[in-house]
Amino acid sequence: MLLWPAVTLVGFLVLTALVIAMGTSTTARYEREQRAAARRETAQAGATVEAVGMARAA
């Protein structure tokens, strides 16, 4: 009698853990990509400022 409620509870907990694990890894990947994009934009902006400064100095 108590077998099916126990199986249901265990299945629910397993699926919940799976969803949390997938969400955590996806969020981590998204944040890495956002940080990399921000670094690229900063590097490009810095290179543009240096090029303009060198043109004025010359």
Rank of each mutant, 00 (worst) to 15 (best):
M1R: 05
M1D: 02
M1Q: 04
M1C: 01
M1F: 02
L2Q: 15
L2R: 14
L2S: 13
W4S: 12
P5S: 06
A6T: 12
A6R: 10
V7L: 15
T8Y: 05
T8E: 06
L9C: 10
V10K: 08
G11V: 05
G11Y: 06
G11C: 03
F12D: 04
F12T: 09
V14M: 12
V14N: 07
L15A: 04
L15Q: 03
L15G: 02
T16N: 13
A17L: 09
A17T: 15
L18F: 08
L18T: 08
L18N: 05
V19C: 14
I20W: 10
I20A: 13
A21H: 09
A21L: 11
A21I: 11
A21N: 12
A21Y: 13
M22G: 12
G23L: 01
G23V: 01
T24G: 15
T24W: 12
S25A: 08
S25D: 03
S25P: 00
T26F: 01
T27E: 08
T27W: 09
A28Q: 06
A28V: 08
R29S: 13
Y30E: 11
E31L: 04
E31Q: 09
E31N: 07
R32N: 03
E33C: 00
E33H: 01
E33D: 02
Q34K: 10
Q34G: 03
R35C: 01
R35P: 00
A36C: 09
A36L: 14
A37G: 01
A38I: 04
A38C: 01
R39I: 05
R39A: 08
R40E: 12
E41S: 14
T42I: 08
T42M: 09
T42W: 09
T42P: 00
T42N: 09
T42C: 03
A43M: 09
Q44T: 14
A45E: 13
A45K: 11
A45Y: 13
G46R: 07
G46E: 06
A47M: 13
V49N: 03
V49H: 05
E50I: 02
E50W: 02
A51E: 05
A51P: 00
V52T: 12
V52E: 06
M54V: 04
A55I: 13
R56P: 00
R56H: 06
A58F: 15
A58E: 15
